[in-house]
């Protein structure tokens, strides 16, 4: 699953102790396994089933998800800035594909 993934932090400038909104986006078909192709055969299910969000290798949020999410899913949550470090998010799909994305943060003040 070598697809594109993004981590977005809002607002762009933040200080220690501030609560920021974090969005994770990943490009993924999220097939339900119910759709048919043009020949009438079922398209096998392919969806992200696990999203783990780490800060400095400590698990912050663990999301179990299913095929009911939209194509190219978006996950948004919040985080209280505790200091400089690295956000890491790992997406896993039901076929075992793994996508890892990380970004470094440097809070001001």
């Amino acid at each position: 699953m070598a697809t594109k993934a993004l981590i977005k932090i809002k607002p762009k400038k933040y200080a220690v102790g501030e609560i920021v909104k974090i969005d994770f986006m990943v490009m993924h078909p999220m097939e339900t396994g119910l759709r048919k192709d043009k020949a009438g055969a079922l398209i096998p299910a392919e969806y992200i089933n696990d999203v783990k969000f780490f800060f400095n290798d400590k698990l912050v949020t663990h999301m179990e998800v299913w095929e009911s999410l939209s194509t190219n899913p978006l996950f948004s949550t919040s985080y209280k800035i505790a200091g400089a470090g690295e956000f890491k998010v790992i997406f896993t799909d039901n076929k075992g594909g793994v996508n890892e994305q990380s970004t470094k943060i440097t809070p001001k003040g």
Binding site: I19, K21, M30, T32, L34, F55, K58, L59, V60, T61, H62, M63, E64, V65, W66, E67, S68, L69, S70, P73, L74, F75, S76, T77, S78, Y79, K80, A82
Partner: peptide
């Protein structure tokens, strides 16, 4: 949960106090 979907489960999000705020957003089918 989407109550009438084939699979009602959409997302189960396990939070910790490090989140600072209990929010979760996504897009569902």
């Amino acid at each position: 949960l989407a109550t009438k979907n084939n699979n009602v489960r959409c997302a189960y999000v396990h939070l910790t106090p490090a989140n600072g705020q209990a929010t979760f957003g996504t897009r569902v089918k």
